[in-house]
Design a protein around this nucleic acid. Structure first.
Length: 409
DNA sequence: TCTGGGGTCCTAGGACCC
DNA sequence: TCTGGGGTCCTAGGACCC
């Protein structure tokens, strides 16, 4: 039988900000941007939550609900540092750790009793170790499954520990609302409500056939989850079997919608460079490039293209992304957001062939040198040769007045 | 209220192949 | 001609999570 811990940092971003500036403690603090900006709340202090503010809420809404709240842009690199500290502590307790996000993790603590004692004692030690190392509060859920531990850590908030004893899972889950189940969001919640299912217990009583017919594969997983099992998809994977990323992306929402081709294309190039730098830092190559376009009015499209070979060279992705953009942007339609996304990774550089040029090797070493400089002096420190926005200028002007070309078939 | 950014997984249709 | 049955790859979109 397994013993799974789920550890979740309490109000993580806000708590790190409070370490930096203790005068923030006890005040309504919102991390994510300024109250008048486009954007949403990343994290809200418990004080701010009393005003009905929660993450994912538009900043402008938050500032109306609580005009005297303190709005902070946040320090992402610092949160990452603290996240690394948390991970280091976790690895002292178990070799099987999955960082599920920047502020939460699963630990497989099976068989750790000789080292740390029974689950509650071990959790207490872990809690103290996190506090000592970071000065931050966290909550810990314990059970036989990832799913129940995750829900338990949520119920344990804040700064608490909760152990759901083996065999009591279904009973413990039964009175909770279905939206406590990770994966059940607004849409599924509404669909379930429409057939009279409000609580996890209601869900557990349903016939599996019925759920399969009604919700497909997801319905079957739901039936298992209602009973506390790690059924289906991500939850089924062994802790510690974590692999590299499956996709890497960057996107940017403009402060104001724009139809300026030069601004749009240079933004795309910059996004491509950031994506490819991260790709190389993982020693990966990608084969599919995807453009994301969000227009005024929030209508959003994605357009993808797979390349003949895997690549880690900026030029290849920039070429594909700009082509997709020119085929799919109907000027003068205003653009709200641009995104660049790469996927279908490989770890090996393709053999030289008809498609690769002698240039590729030079590009590759030049890009690696550039990456090191960017690490040292910042992202905007330099742009390399062909990736320089200026070089694309002529074609920007060329492309600008043209009407939208349909995708070539 | 006017909606970020970085991810994962799933579905579904069409192309293409045997 | 009134229409197979898989299997896989590609693309687009959407739900969901933090």
């Amino acid at each position: 039988m397994k013993t799974i811990f789920h550890l979740d940092m309490d109000a993580f971003f806000v708590s790190v900000e409070e370490l930096l500036d203790p005068s923030l403690k006890g005040k309504p603090v919102i991390v994510g941007g300024q109250g008048h900006e486009r954007g949403v709340v990343s994290a809200a202090s418990y004080e701010a939550r009393k005003f009905g503010i929660h993450s994912a809420m538009p900043l402008r809404t938050a500032s109306q609900l609580c005009p005297h709240a303190i709005f902070l842009d946040g320090h992402m690199h610092l949160y990452r540092e603290y996240s690394d500290k948390v991970e280091a502590v976790l690895r002292d307790f178990s070799p099987l750790v999955d960082m599920a996000s920047i502020d939460e993790a699963y630990l497989d603590m099976t068989g750790s009793e000789r080292l740390f004692g029974p689950p509650l004692a071990a959790a207490h030690k872990l809690h103290q170790a996190i506090s000592r190392s970071t000065g931050l509060d966290c909550s810990i859920g314990i059970s036989r499954s990832r799913l129940v531990s995750k829900i338990a850590s949520d119920q344990a908030k804040r700064n608490g520990i909760l152990w759901v004893l083996p065999g009591t899972e279904a009973n413990w889950l039964a009175p909770l609302l279905v939206k406590r189940i990770p994966g059940v969001g607004k849409v599924t919640e509404k669909q379930l409500a429409a057939i009279g299912i409000k609580r996890i217990g209601d869900l557990a009583r349903l016939d599996e056939r019925f759920l399969l017919d009604r919700f497909g594969k997801w319905g079957l997983a739901l039936a298992g989850k209602a009973r506390g099992q790690d059924a289906g998809g991500w939850f089924d994977q062994e802790i510690g079997s974590g692999q590299g990323p499956k996709s890497i992306s960057h996107e940017h929402t403009f402060p104001e919608d724009s139809a300026d081709p030069q601004l749009l294309e240079s933004t795309l190039i910059h996004l491509c460079e950031k994506v490819m730098k991260r790709l190389r830092s993982h020693a990966l190559l990608a084969r599919t490039a995807q453009l994301k376009l969000r227009f005024d009015g929030f209508e959003t499209i994605t357009r993808a293209r797979s390349l003949p070979e895997h690549t880690d060279i900026d030029r290849d992705i920039i070429t594909a992304i700009l082509a997709l953009f020119r085929e799919n942007w109907p000027p003068p339609r205003k653009v709200r957001l641009l995104g660049v996304h790469v996927s279908h990774f490989s770890t090996t550089i393709p053999q030289p062939n008809l498609l690769t040029t002698a240039e590729d090797g030079k590009w590759r070493s030049a890009l690696r040198a550039a990456d090191r400089l960017k690490d040292k002096f910042g992202d905007s420190a330099l742009h390399l040769g062909g990736a320089l926005p200026g070089r694309y200028k002529d074609r920007v002007h060329e492309a600008a007045p043209k009407p939208n070309k349909p995708p070539s078939s």
